[in-house]
Structures are given as C-alpha cells and as structure tokens.
Amino acid sequence: MSSLHTVSKAPQLGLLAQCLAVATAGDAVILLEDGVYYCLKNPEELPPAGDVALFALAEDLSARGLLERNRAGIELASYVEFVDLCCKHERSVSWF
C-alpha cells in the first residue's frame, strides 16, 4: 500500500523534508513545478530519502533551465512516466 508524494513548491518551504518524514519504504516522491528547484541542491543538502525513490518532472526542469543543472542527480521522469508512477501507487499525497 504505497503512496506517490508530489512536492510542488520551492525548497524554501521545506516541504520535501516534511514529506520524507512521513513517507515509508516503497513510496516515491516526484518533484513538480517549483519543487524541481531541489535539483539545484548538492546531494548532501537534500533531506535523506532512505528507501523512498526520488523523481523530478523533466518538463518542469526544462522550463526552468534546470535540465543541465541537476546537481542533486535526481532521476528525471517524463509526463508519461509520471502517469506510470501514479498508477503504480495506491494513492497520491500532494505537498504544496
């Protein structure tokens, strides 16, 4: 019974850490909209994700000039892969 969490606000709000605090093993997180600015962080500045897979929507990175600047090394997902993720998990939890 896993969840897909979406984080769609800029890092200053700290939503990724809040989200990861209540995410469990097998869950996934996808960064959307301004959430993709987390990709600018260095990996050690990201909250520890443990057994939670972390993705970012490629289209939102591209729009913001971040495609070549993904310092965090977060795995990119296309819209189609985003839809796959939605189907793979029983529920979604939005953090915005």
Partner: peptide, 17 residues
C-alpha cells in the same frame, strides 16, 4: 508523530493534504 502519521496515510484510501 511522524511514524504514526505514516501508518495512517498507508491505510487511507484518500489523503487530502
């Protein structure tokens, strides 16, 4: 706490956050 909330989310059909 966080772990109790994680368990609650895991047994919910719908979550509004």
């Amino acid at each position: 706490d966080d772990s109790q909330l994680a368990a609650l989310i895991a047994r919910s059909d719908q979550v509004l956050n």
